[in-house]
Design a protein around this nucleic acid. Sequence first.
RNA 1: GUGAGCGUGGCCAAGUUGGUUAAGGCGCCAGGUUGUGGCCCUGGAGAUCGAGGGUUCGAAUCCCUUCGCUCACCCCA
Length: 429
Amino acid sequence: MNSGIIQSVRGMNDILPTASETWRYVEQTIHEVVALYGYGEIRTPIVEKTELFSRSIGEQTDIVEKEMYTFVDRNQDSLTLRPEGTASCIRAGISHGLLYNSTQRWWYLGPMFRHERPQKGRYRQFHQFGVEAIGWPGPDIDSEVISLGHALWRALGLVGLRLEINTLGSLESRRQYTDALKIFLSDNYSDLDEASTFRLDQNPLRILDSKDPNTKALLSNAPVMGDYLTAEDKAHFDLLCRQLDILRIDYHINNRLVRGLDYYTGAVFEWIVPGEGSQNSVCGGGRYDNLVQQLGGSSTPAAGFACGLERLINLVEEQQNRRQSDAVVDIWMVLLGESATLTGHALAEDLRRKGMRVICNCGGGTIGKQLRRADQSGAHYAVIIGDKELESNAITIKGLRIAEEQSGIPLEKAVDFLDAQLKNVTTSR
RNA sequence: GUGAGCGUGGCCAAGUUGGUUAAGGCGCCAGGUUGUGGCCCUGGAGAUCGAGGGUUCGAAUCCCUUCGCUCACCCCA
């Protein structure tokens, strides 16, 4: 590469026209599914005060410790490009007074930023679709957000996603469990891998999903969260499981499932794709009953999830075999000469007003050249305007997908004529 | 942050026991066909072989440095 060429920032990708078609398809499907569940869209700023994320996600998480895009602005405020969407939603809900003695069903979709080493399914600017259901304490809302995700996979024609669920319990039961786990792990300190010894003080629950073989082996004898749950925690989780049964959504209880963000409480879940390597988590979420209060609101229960668009689109491409293509047009105007160009552009506007998709040949060229471009564009018809047509005040049309050519179509009848022709061919308009 | 692999025209690439003009395909342009596309044929343009340095009579090829991309670890969506 020439050193004078400016490249995009590492891990931040361009989505070119051929690929954006799949993105639009996925986004439109999301719009349809959230509408079915009555969720409203919320759009929050991409930049927030750094404190919002450090307080909600947790100081000792990887995200806050080493992955945030943080900078000081001209007012000396510390700002951060959002690494996830939930904190902003709750901040917005609190500051607009929408969460007080009230309930909300929201969804969002947009770019997020984390400074990690890029690899397949993981980028520094990536996109998340997420939902937040705020104000309901019971497991009915947990199963609702899970089934919303499930509905999306179905609408996208995706198969093979595996739902794993767990419960982290309420604050008290989690504290008791954490204490027991700490004692157990401290007693077996020498068997822990290095990263886990570091987490022992800060965030012992995260040791549970360690991938180190020795630590994994050790954990098979460790205390289990299930034994520390209060009766209430248990009832909530059991009811969630029963609701999933009734909805006929298959799930697997994974008592090692721990989320990487500190605000989660109670039921948590993750949709994973077996065999997709380590970036196999397409969607993760759960309850966060303390977050609203933690960010200065009144105590309000909530649940939600976030779904990685790049990973989802990856699956769509693998499973759906969708053809990627540039925009296709109905009509290509072949224009021979200056006055033909003027006439042709005017006719094109009339055609577009009728809803036909039209490209006018630009840059001149012989009729052969222009027809070649017309053919390659994927258009159904070429409209030819040259000296002959101008003389008789008519146009010539030529089918590009079927053998058909007609000349002498009066200019004033051209719009209706082409409209009728196009209705005979299947278009994706 | 750690490790591995890879950087050759716009794109896909062959070529790496060092040897003269760096294959081929796609795309692009022109012509065969001066108002008729696809298929075919012919010709053409387009490369400081990622960058910098070194070894050598000679480097895409060997050595060093550096940048970039990809994948994996870690972590997460």
